[in-house]
Design a binder for these strands. Sequence first.
DNA 1: CCGCATCCTCTCGGATACTG
DNA 2: CAGTATCCGAGAGGATGCGG
Lengths: 142, 142
Amino acid sequence: MNMETIAENQKVRTAKKLEKMFGHIDYKHPPELCPVRDVMSVASDQWSTLIILWLGYFPVLRFNKLKKFVYGISNKVLSQRLKVLEADGYISRKAYAEVPIRVEYRLTDFGQTYVEKLLELTEWMQSNSPKVLANREKFGLL
Amino acid sequence: MNMETIAENQKVRTAKKLEKMFGHIDYKHPPELCPVRDVMSVASDQWSTLIILWLGYFPVLRFNKLKKFVYGISNKVLSQRLKVLEADGYISRKAYAEVPIRVEYRLTDFGQTYVEKLLELTEWMQSNSPKVLANREKFGLL
DNA sequence: CCGCATCCTCTCGGATACTG
DNA sequence: CAGTATCCGAGAGGATGCGG
């Protein structure tokens, strides 16, 4: 069995899985709310992924620390994302009634399983980014 | 070795990988352009992922077919995304000089490797969406 | 220290109509 | 059929200041 056949088989397997996921949907009368789209829109959000990755790196982080690592994010967006991520069960929030107040964020067990999946994708991005950037340049499109 | 230790080891491995990726960045003087952020912003875009997944399902799709499957997307956004995905090397575009014109989109080999990664994440989303939705409901937040 | 409230900008994206 | 052009509205998100 040569390389082409292996790749071809992989292609078929992928298509089969996708058929299982999407094959049933009637695109003439699409579902109002698609759970996958819904969940993805939170979990795969640009800022959310960065937050989750950093919490996978450091077991516990406070608001301002997080803001430094996820550089470029604003107060507003950070707290929004944190709230949603907490609601969806990826992270936990623990506030200590001190003055000044101290708040700790960490991944839940569920969030931990997610960060592992997410990391795989990020590693792919990392190792393939040169190729993508090269493609982009060659293509021109400015 | 019990379950907790296994999970704990996994956690440590994940953190180590993330340290390798992010450990070097000086968050006081963050890089202007982060390649990973850049590449992710294209590839992990909500619409782009759907386009890529459908092209992983059907080897070749034309513009309007794609628009039906990726329901809810507008003309403008679809053609924008297609152009960028082509520039980044995920998909190929082939136009036939017929009347009316016919255009075929398909994954490149590179795009094929990406859709496989992406599929893993999507499967995770799919199987965990009930849990997330339940979390969300319990949490309130309306 | 955490993060909400306010304001204000500005980009993204939807709808529609039109052309090669 | 496969887009492009144009217009327009909504809402995301940045900056800042305040309050608990």
